[in-house]
Design a protein around this nucleic acid. Structure first.
Lengths: 122, 122
DNA sequence: TGGTTAATTAACTTATCGGTTAATTATGTG
DNA sequence: CACATAATTAACCGATAAGTTAATTAACCA
């Protein structure tokens, strides 16, 4: 049901999963390695589920090696997020001048088309 | 659930909310302006709820002007995401050389402990 | 005053999420 | 073989997310 990007954002909306990703940013790890920091707080099946979410989100790939499942970061998911973010760069880079200039051009267009936006009073 | 970054990612994990944000990237808009493209698919209260999610996530700020509620993008939330993303830049920028070099330094530590592929734990 | 527009709140339903325990599948080893 | 280790699957549960309809608040207008 959900599009890929939604799945990716959804996967990142959990501190445990982000921590697992941070762990993997240091290199490959198998499931029990990833689980270790969390086994005081949750069970191993919970970790398996989190990993599956990360996989489906395109953030992690899991392979097999005997009974182990080495995991590593999959850059695809991160790239999708980074690409989406790009369109908002001017907002989070506090370049106020460029932002105001940009918004001014948009507003100018609206005026031409006679759009009475949120501009009606004051 | 309670940490800010999770809330922000969670807010972005919905195509309707991302579309509303895209709309707001063109300038301020009232609730009904934002709702218009979606009123075939969902009710106005649904939009109100989506907006509230975006607000709590620090992605949108809503003010009052008579009976209207002009909304605009709040860069704080976007900045939080962008900052978090930074630590993974080397992955989604396919600079394979640097990535491999980096991972090699991390793996070198493991090799000292005799790890071939993250094989052991304990 | 009464009516219209903009938006929110309340109450409710349904589906999904994040976790659990118990059982199961693989693989390697004495 | 028996057994331990690594990880997954199954079945279940409570909380929350996303939507609905109906009612309500708030401001403007004639």
């Amino acid at each position: 049901m959900p599009d890929q990007l939604s799945q990716t954002f959804s996967a990142l909306a959990d501190p445990t999963r982000r921590a697992m990703l941070a762990h993997l940013s240091k290199g490959e790890a198998n499931v029990s390695d990833l689980a270790k920091p969390f086994l005081k707080d949750m069970s191993l099946p919970a970790i398996t589920k989190h990993l599956k979410v990360l996989e489906k989100a395109g953030l992690v790939t899991k392979t097999r090696e005997a009974q182990w499942r080495p995991c590593k970061i999959n850059s695809e998911g991160l790239k999708d997020v980074a690409d989406w973010m790009e369109q908002y760069r001017m907002f989070w880079e506090e370049s106020f001048d460029r932002l105001e200039a940009y918004l001014k051009t948009v507003t100018a267009n609206d005026k031409k088309k006679g759009k009475k936006n949120a501009k009606k009073s004051k």
